[in-house]
Simulated assay, not measured.
Amino acid sequence: MLAELSAALIAEVERAAKLLGTKRRICILTGAGISAESGIPTFRDKQTGLWENYGAEDLATPEAFVRDPNLVWSWYQWRRQVVADKKPNPAHDALAQWQYHSHSSGQHITLITQNVDDLHEQAGSTITHLHGHLWRNRCSQCKTPYQKQSRGSYSSADTMDYNEELISCPHCDGYIRPDIVWFGEALPVQAWETAEEAAANCEVFISIGTSSLVYPAAGLAQLAKDNAAKIIEINPNPTPNTIVDINLAEKAGMVMPLLIQKITAL
Score class of each variant (00 low, 15 high):
S168Y: 11
S168M: 05
Y162R: 08
R136M: 09
A199N: 07
E233W: 06
E164S: 12
A221D: 07
I167W: 12
N247Q: 14
T144I: 14
N201T: 15
Y146H: 15
L223H: 07
L220Q: 11
P188K: 09
A252R: 03
A217Q: 10
T194P: 01
G209N: 07
A218W: 07
N235L: 04
F205V: 02
Q141C: 09
T242V: 00
N237T: 05
A229K: 08
P216K: 04
D245P: 10
T210K: 01
N227R: 15
P216Q: 04
I243S: 06
L213F: 01
E185R: 05
N237Y: 04
S212I: 01
L187K: 12
H131D: 05
D226V: 05
S156R: 08
S168A: 14
K143N: 12
P170N: 06
E196W: 09
I243T: 06
E165P: 04
S168L: 15
S155T: 14
A229R: 09
D158P: 00
L223W: 07
C139H: 06
L213S: 08
W135K: 04
G174M: 05
T159Q: 13
A198S: 15
V189L: 13
D226R: 15
L187D: 08
L130Q: 08
Q149F: 14
K225M: 09
S212R: 04
S153T: 10
D179G: 02
Y162T: 10
L187I: 07
Y162D: 12
I232K: 11
R136I: 03
T159G: 10
Q141H: 15
R177D: 02
A195R: 08
V204T: 05
A252Q: 05
A218H: 06
E164H: 09
S140W: 11
